[in-house]
Amino acid sequence: MNQAVSQDSRRTTPNGTTRFRSFCAPDEIRRYTFSPQFGAHATYRSLYTKRESLEKNAEKPDTNVSLALSEDDLIIGFGVLAYPGHGERWAELQPQVMMEVKAIEVCRSWRSLGIAKGILEMLLCHPLREDKIIYMVGYSWTWDLDGTKKTAQQYRGMLIRLFEPFGFLEYQTNEPNICLKPENLFMGRVGSRITPETEKGFKWLRFGMTP
């Protein structure tokens, strides 16, 4: 379970006031309703289609599940910051140094209202953020291009504009899944307490090597 204290913020949008909550515990998540818009669409499927998936993530150590809630406690957006799974390249650097923004999603009717930015703010209010290398992977085949009416490149640009203000930089990597498509994206944020040796290890790891 997570020891971090949950934070709360609010933002007024044309759809009403949105509340953002960080470090939501499973019990808290169970109190809210999951928007049915997080489901399968014609050309797109949400990363999580069940509230239970968020609850399971929230049980893991250091994991930050952040939610965006409408006035009637409907989950209209969510984000998950967690350690990479065993066997993933990014888990190899050092134990629990790298954390992944595993998900950040806003339901279709609440997009373009700054909700994703609010969720990301909540994810990154993590007390260990300066001790971690936080990264995100953008696979173009998971993007809702149909719902956003964007090209893959425009969507990619939108993600870069979302993450850059929080200190994320775009990095090259030979990770095979990321390399499958040039529009795929890998960004990282190196915490201020990361040592130069660890940062160097991160660089080499991006190319599947050890120094």
Partner: peptide, 8 residues
């Protein structure tokens, strides 16, 4: 260069 859905 596919502008929308890739051929993956």
């Amino acid at each position: 260069l596919h502008r929308t859905w890739s051929d993956f």
